[in-house]
Nucleic acid binder design. Structure first.
Length: 154
DNA sequence: AACGTACACTTAT
DNA sequence: ATAAGTGTACGTT
């Protein structure tokens, strides 16, 4: 299967994506873009639409390694919600610090929504910049509110 | 193959 | 606020 690549914007950042068909191999936040398109759901998500990215597969979420289990647990956290490192650790049968390491090495952020994993008493980390995590969480939170308001006020 | 160190944490003082 | 506990991974012997 042919490997494709491209980028789109998320705020000040570019989101570079390498993928083939419906499997994403790499996602990274960068200060520069690369030519080419990104998968439709990623484009919409970055544009601020409340898109569920579980329709895309991540290359990293399939094997039955510790990281594989962690990544699958992380993918269960829905749009607009968060879980703690400890919760993910319990789900995956490992320890919280391992979850931190797995998040730091996550090859496909967004597809594996590591930004939704926060510390028990704080936001936790994010590379290359914590601002991205804050922005992603703020965006999802805002969209959830919109959806809820739409349901209850009309 | 063992060892030391580093962690995007957590829980108990 | 601080320290002790924690599980895993990774580089270096």
């Amino acid at each position: 299967m042919e490997i494709l690549e491209g980028s789109c914007r998320f705020g000040l950042w570019f989101v570079q994506v390498r993928w083939s068909a419906d499997t994403v191999h790499r996602v990274r936040f960068a200060e520069v873009g690369i030519p080419g398109a990104v998968p439709e759901p990623v484009r919409k998500y970055c544009a601020g639409l409340p898109v569920d990215l579980t329709s895309l597969a991540s290359i990293a979420a399939h094997d039955d390694s510790t990281y594989g289990r962690i990544y699958r647990a992380v993918r269960k956290v829905p749009y607009g919600k968060t879980a703690t490192y400890g919760e993910i650790a319990r789900d995956a049968g490992t320890g919280p610090r391992v979850v931190g390491q797995a998040m730091a090495r996550n090859p496909t952020p967004l597809i594996i929504p590591c930004h939704r994993i926060v510390a028990a008493h704080g936001i936790g980390g994010f590379s290359p910049s914590i601002e991205i995590k804050e922005a992603l969480l703020a965006m999802e939170r805002k969209n959830l509110h919109k959806i809820l308001l739409g349901k209850t006020t009309n």
